[in-house]
Design a binder for these strands. Sequence first.
DNA 1: CCGGCCATAGTGGTCCGACCACATCGAAGA
DNA 2: TCTTCGATGTGGTCGGACCACTATGGCCGG
Lengths: 233, 233
Amino acid sequence: MDETAPQKGTVTQRAIEQIKTMIAEGRLEPGQRLPTERDLAVQLGISRSSMREAIRALTVLGVLEARHGSGIYVTQLQAGDLLETFGVVADLSRGPRLVELLEVRRILESTATALAAARITADQLAEVEKHLTAMNATDDPDEILAHDLAFHREIAVAAGNDTMAAILEGLSSRTFRARVWRGYQEEGAFARTRREHAAIHRALAARDPEAARAAAAAHVGEVEEWLRAQLAG
Amino acid sequence: MDETAPQKGTVTQRAIEQIKTMIAEGRLEPGQRLPTERDLAVQLGISRSSMREAIRALTVLGVLEARHGSGIYVTQLQAGDLLETFGVVADLSRGPRLVELLEVRRILESTATALAAARITADQLAEVEKHLTAMNATDDPDEILAHDLAFHREIAVAAGNDTMAAILEGLSSRTFRARVWRGYQEEGAFARTRREHAAIHRALAARDPEAARAAAAAHVGEVEEWLRAQLAG
DNA sequence: CCGGCCATAGTGGTCCGACCACATCGAAGA
DNA sequence: TCTTCGATGTGGTCGGACCACTATGGCCGG
């Protein structure tokens, strides 16, 4: 009888969907400021508590951004904003799924590196070189890891597909990488890693997409195979 | 002075990290039941409201599952659970990022189809055929879309990498696909789509990975090019 | 007239206590 | 023995209060 009561799921879930829909339909533009929590709660006919849960949920998804004392804003909805949560997948995965993640990364990373070889600018190539030399100049594992990440990140950006770069960023999240790399590097894989990085850089400098694809695939594939062997043993 | 007050970020954010850490460190196993919201709040020294926000956030991320009247449980942490949110990226993306998403899908889908050609079982192939014939036997756009999705989902599963399948599932989310497909099919692309699907199936039946890769890449690439042209015009 | 300071209003962040809706399980009954 | 149903405990929702922070604009001193 009551046409104003759809009543599906929790009110919070409903609020999440409604806000998402407002954004998808363009009624809320990126960067725009939303009404206050109190006003939004009244508009959707729910309590402030439930509205806050909905806002919090959309915040962790990278859709909204809450600024204490200022207001709630729609993010720019950039690939990086929305795919930030992708890292939790990598962080909470163990065993066989780690191999699957590396397989996905190998596929994307090799393609991204190939694209980068064709499109990379001189400035970007210089930046890649910087991280390559810095990586080879130190013994601190943390520093090596940081430059390793930056090395691949620069390449992914140079590929020109921000979405792909954001996904690769998640697949290489710091904690994920640290867990796998630690064991890998302990087996004296430093030299091999350096050779592979050098090969990737060489292919980029030569603007050779096929060589770049092969080098990147081999690079990730090495770790993949090592991890596979670890799990089997 | 007070060593018990780290005080970084909001208490809710801290609670989210703490629960995530507990799971990452194995102190909480998949499927396990957590203490009640009230108890958890006491344990972490925060209010029930803040704890609820943290739980809600982890729920939308697919890490936790709240069952009304029963309790809060850790999900199985399957790829599908954690990558469900991937769909929101597709749903909230517009313009150039749609092309980027299709590019990622083309890369992954072509590889997945190639893997499927090598690994697919007779039963799985029969399932693929079922959706192919069903897709060609109806004129209802919604039904076509549903079978189209199922067609590619079966292939992705047959590839043997659940993580990749889950990502592809997100990249083909219903609302995303509906938005792009609508315009694409309006231009009489039905016949072409059928030919491409038939080619993919033929490659799978022939257990020919290279042909499967090419057919899948062409299939997604067609839509990609069409969308690129739409945006340019 | 100008610039920096500061009171104030408004916002998100946190907490509390109450009640409701639902799932579960055991005791009472057929 | 099986079924029923009530008691208990759980997540879901609500309303209000207060705290922490931002931003604004007027005031004061220069």
